[in-house]
Design a protein around this nucleic acid. Sequence first.
DNA 1: CCTGGAGTTGTCCTA
DNA 2: TTAGGACAACTCCAG
Length: 478
Amino acid sequence: MPRQAPTLLWFRQDLRLRDNPALIAALATGSVLPVYVLDDESAGSWRRGAASRCWLHRSLDALNESLHGKLWVLKGDAAEVIPAFAAEHGAAAVHWNRGYEPWRIARDKQIKQTLSDAGVLVESHAGTLLWEPWHNLKKDGTPYKVFTPYYRNALATQPAPVPAATVDAAQLSAALHDCAQPNNKIDTLALLPRLNWHEGMLSDWVPGEAGAQAQLSSFLDAGIEDYREGRDFPAKMSVSRLSPHLHFGEISPNEAAFAANLSGQRGHESQSEHFVRELVWREFSYYLLYHFPSLTDANMKSDFDRFPWLDDADLRSAWQRGMTGYPIVDAGMRELYTTGYMHNRVRMIVASFLIKNLMQDWRHGEKWFWDCLVDADLASNSCSWQWVAGSGADAAPYFRIFNPVTQSQKFDPDGAYIRRFVPELAKLSAKHLHDPSSAPTMELQLAGIELGKDYPAAIVDLKQTRERALAAYKTLRD
DNA sequence: CCTGGAGTTGTCCTA
DNA sequence: TTAGGACAACTCCAG
C-alpha cells in the first residue's frame, strides 16, 4: 500500500502545540511532517543574536520532545530548503503560521510561489498576533500612528481573545509522519556558544511550551494582582516575564490575553486590563513594522537624520559593561548581560541614558539589545528604541529625559535590585546607593568602596548632559 | 476642509 | 514637604 503523502508543518516563531492554527490544519490532512529551518541567510543584518540563539536551542529541544523526537531541523535559506525538503518527501501540502518581519514576508511570498508552481498546496495561518496588522486601519484606510486611538479602535472592532484551541495528544502522536530516522540533531544547528556562558544565563528560565504555561500560571496566581503599580518596580515579581515565550511563540498572545481577561473577571479587572494593554503594545509594534518596514534601521521622523549624535566607543563600552557609575543603569545592563533579560522600567532608564545623556545613536542600543536579549524581537525592539529616542511615530516628547538617580530612588527605593546586580555596592546605605559619586567619602569607606577602583565614578554629569541633549533636540526645529 | 482635543512610562522650579 | 505648572510645537485623529 502506498504511503500517504505527508503534510509539512513548518515551525517558525510558533514553537508550541497549543493554540496553533497551522498544526490544526496540518493534522486535518492526516500525516504530519514537522520541520524547523534555521535561516540566517534571509534575515540579513537582523539574523538572530547570541542570547536568543541559546533560548532557541532549548526551545527546539522542548518542542522535539513533545513531538516524540520527530522534529526535523534544517539549516540554510528557507526559500531553497523548504521546497527541496517538500519534494524530497513527496509532500502534498505545507502549512505554517505567518511572521511579519519585512525579510520574512518577502521570503515567504517567494516560497509560496515556488511551492504553488510545483503543485504543492500552501497555506499560511494567523497564529502569532492577536490581529493581522493589515486590519484596524483608520477610516481613510491608512494605519494609525498613535497608540491610544489604535488601541481603542482595536478593542472596539477586532475579535476578542478566545479559549486556546488544543489538539488531541493521541491523534497527534498517530499522525506524525513515520519515515527514516529524522535529522533531529539540534546540536548541528550550532546555536550554543563555544564557551559555556548560556547555562548561567538560562538558569532562571524554562524555554519551551511547558515553561511558558508555567510562567503564565505563576503570573496569574501571583504577579497580576499588583501588575498596574508593581510592574514599575524591578525588584518586585510583578511583571509577566512572558516576553521570550511570546517571541518564540511558545504561548500565543490570544491565550495569554484570554487568561488575563478571565483573571479580570475574578476581580483583577484593572490589573488585567493593563496587562492586555501591554500585549496590544506588542501588536502595535508589529503593526507599525508591517506598515513602515524601514523603521528597524531608519528614523521614522526624518528630522532626526540631522540629529548631532556623538560617536564615542568608550562611553558605549562602559554602558554595555554596566560601568557607568550610575547604579540603576549598571544594574540593568548587568541584568541584561547575565540573564538575557531586563525589567521594562529599567530598559527605559538605560535607553534614555544612552541616547540622551551619552548622546549615542539609538541604533547602537538597538543592536546591543538585539544581541543580548533572549526576548529580542525585531518589532518591539526597534519601535521601543525609536520611542525613547523621540524619532518614532508616537514618541516621547523630547524634553522627557529620565534622571537615572531620581528613577532609582523612586522605583528601587531600598536598592534591592541594585544590590542584586551590582554587588560591590551592596553595603552602601539606601541614601547613597543611587548615586555613589555624590556620597561622602566616609560613607564609601564604611561600605568598602573606593570610587574608580571598586566601582566607577559617574562617567558623565547628569545636569550638563541633560542640557546638552535639550539643546541638540532644539537644533532639529531649525 | 476645518477644528479642537489629545498624545505610555518625566523633570525641575516655584510657591 | 508637596502640588501644580512649564517645558514646544506638532502631528494625529475624530467629529
